[in-house]
């Protein structure tokens, strides 16, 4: 089987304080330490697990980003991914969800994938819309919030996380699967993986390789417009309830009003 995992290089959430550029209203990504999205690490772990259980399968990591994103892909290779593809083109700068998904989908289409793994959302932008858009561009079913995934014949079967437990959802292959965060234990690159990462196949594609026009992607093709950015409102002080015999009732009412009960 041909399995793909979409990954992204992001400002290191452990060391970098996210900053928005007030002029472009975009996240500042230059001059900061960049890493493979920690969320993608668990998605890679899920994909590796499936590849190993299926046997006779190849796992490819794919990313759209500047040349530096190569490092994130090398890390994916060190973790055990077999092959990597980087789509890098100056015309891609400023891509919105639509442009990103269009580009990734164009690259994926050439590969005839059986299964495409994505994290539910990235740890920087958090839109959570790219996987759905990729599925749409490719005309594939999308299975979301998977905490377990298996392939049975020509079907993908997942356990889909819900508020109360899980649902079993299946779809024909090929399909796009998003992994629920925290469902798989992250894995470490191995020394062997690190030492062999450089020898694994790595290809870099530009827009023209994908047959895309610069007007369809990047700043030029963006259909999203960020109108304004602002600080989240500071959380208001909590309410202190003095127990005069009816505290439990008040608390229960409060929880019910906020649909927490």
């Amino acid at each position: 089987m041909k399995i793909f995992v979409c990954v992204k290089q992001i400002p290191d959430p452990n060391t970098v304080e996210s900053k928005l550029d007030p002029a472009t209203k975009r996240l500042v990504r230059t001059g900061v330490s960049l890493v493979l999205d920690p969320g993608d690490e668990t998605t890679i772990a899920a994909a590796i697990k499936l590849r190993d259980s299926l046997g006779n399968s190849e796992l490819t990591a794919i990313s759209m980003g500047p040349a530096s994103a190569q490092e994130a892909l090398r890390r994916a290779l060190a973790m055990g991914v077999d092959r990597a593809i980087l789509i890098s083109d100056s015309a891609l700068a400023g891509s919105d969800v639509l442009g990103t998904a269009r580009t990734l989908a164009a690259a994926l289409k050439r590969e005839n994938p059986d299964l495409i793994f994505c994290s539910t959302e990235s740890t920087d932008g958090y839109t959570g819309m790219v996987p759905g858009a990729i599925a749409e561009f490719l005309g594939l079913p999308q299975l979301t919030f998977a905490r377990e995934i298996n392939v049975e014949g020509t079907k993908a079967v997942i356990k889909r996380v819900t508020q109360t437990g899980y649902e079993v959802v299946e779809s024909p292959l090929p399909a796009v699967v998003t992994i629920a965060s925290g469902s798989f234990e992250a894995i470490y690159p191995t020394m062997k993986g690190i030492m062999s990462a450089r020898k694994k196949p790595f290809s870099q594609l530009s827009l023209s390789d994908l047959g895309l026009d610069p007007s369809q992607v990047g700043e030029a093709g963006a259909r999203e417009q960020v109108l304004s950015i602002g600080k989240a409102e500071a959380r208001a002080a909590g309410q202190i309830i003095k127990d005069e015999g009816n505290a439990a009732e008040i608390i229960a009412d409060f929880l019910q009003r906020h649909q927490l009960l």
Binding site: V35, R74, R75, A78, Y188, P189, I194
Partner: peptide, 10 residues
């Protein structure tokens, strides 16, 4: 080097 970085990160 790439290897040094990967080892350090790991």
């Amino acid at each position: 080097t790439e290897e040094q970085k990967l080892i350090q990160q790991t």
